[in-house]
Nucleic acid binder design. Structure first.
Lengths: 211, 211
DNA sequence: ATGGATAAGTAACAAAAGTTACACAAGAGT
DNA sequence: ACTCTTGTGTAACTTTTGTTACTTATCCAT
């Protein structure tokens, strides 16, 4: 675990902190699709991402979903930090977008390290910063963009994260994450196909050129 | 200034920190409507709100606006914290919604106090927590609600903050903040008037009963 | 190969939101 | 009183998005 820690967090944390993380953290591998946090869960440990990606979703009272953003290598979950400190329930759902490796830190260390390590404090602040900016991006998308532009952005993000040019999603799944209907997604995807940006297949979408 | 500090932050900060704030902070009064932060500004001090309210707005490339949330007594601006630490430009615009009193803290104290005072760290974390939740609220509104529901929510929030039942806004101003058009706002307001929830006048809206 | 389930294509329609255009009202300044 | 500016009311229309309904395609299991 130490190598992976140093690889991903060595530039952020001093050796002493890396050592501590190594001692109290537990390594975890999560398969694609696994639900890691459900809305309403109480959270007792902080994740440090080593590899893979996690999608963060919001749900309203009627069960309607919306994709907020992705967490990637080197990220942590600001919502989790928040929940840990405040002892409050999770406001979001987290699902592994790809196979993911991470290190879980028990909450109690949070306060201790915040006092002890400047680098930890900076990491936490930085995480909040990043998450607020992701939220702003999300707000920009839903407030200022039409569905066709949102879909395009979504496809770009997806293919960036999966690091391949095949997006393994059904139209229905995309509709859930953009909070629209399957018919609308199919319609707009077909337009993109006609523009030779993508090719549609069953259960997946082949990215040709999204620019 | 000390009394106001103790009144608003005494339950959060120990005396030593209150003293320090008193020494390095500068008291400031801002009139309603004053633009406090513009998008792209670099920020060199952290505001602690004593009284009044500040509205936080987002703008896209075309100049379209959107109200994100309000800051009130006891709040600080997480975006500002973020900008201070990261030395980055502001992503948002801040305008005094009412006459506002606040204390400005120079950035350099941020790091020092974070190391020294647990209560300061908690305050900062708490602020981020609150802001993330406000952003979630905003996302919920624009993603899951129709314009009529958003307008109703907006009116409730406005009348709560101004602590009176007259909302001093033109339809055009409301349209900007909700990122829609004046005609749409007028249309929906008229519906609310027909339901006896509000009464419309020139330049202001009288709240009767919004529930 | 056949049947059943799931995914995708598409037309027709409905609802919500945005746009254009114009009339009218209130108030400010002359 | 008259004019100008700004704010509001409203009709008619367009665009975007969402819904319903049905067809066709693909894959899996037997």
């Amino acid at each position: 675990m130490v190598e992976e820690l140093k690889m991903n967090y060595g530039h952020l944390f001093e050796d002493a902190l890396i050592q501590e993380i190594n001692q109290v953290g537990t390594f975890k591998e999560v398969p694609e699709g696994h639900k890691m946090i459900e809305i309403g869960d109480y959270i007792k440990s902080i994740p440090l991402l080593i590899s893979g990606a996690i999608k963060i979703l919001r749900e309203d009272n009627d069960g309607d979903e919306l994709l907020l953003y992705f967490l990637e290598k080197g990220d942590t979950c600001a919502m989790t930090l928040t929940c840990c400190l405040g002892q409050t329930k999770s406001e979001i759902r987290a699902i592994a977008e790809t196979d993911t490796k991470l290190i879980m830190i028990p909450v109690r260390k949070m306060e201790e390290w915040s006092a002890k390590y400047k680098s930890w404090r900076n990491f936490v602040f930085e995480s909040y910063h990043n998450r607020l900016n992701e939220m702003l991006e999300t707000i920009d998308s839903i407030a200022f963009l039409n569905m066709d532009e949102r879909l395009l952005k979504y496809l770009k993000e997806k293919s960036r994260i999966s690091e391949d040019n095949i997006i393994h999603n059904t139209h229905q799944q995309i509709a859930y994450e953009l909070h629209t209907s399957r018919v609308v997604v199919s319609r707009l995807l077909k337009k993109l196909e006609n523009q030779d940006k993508i090719e549609l297949h069953r259960n997946n979408i082949e990215v040709i050129n999204l620019d």
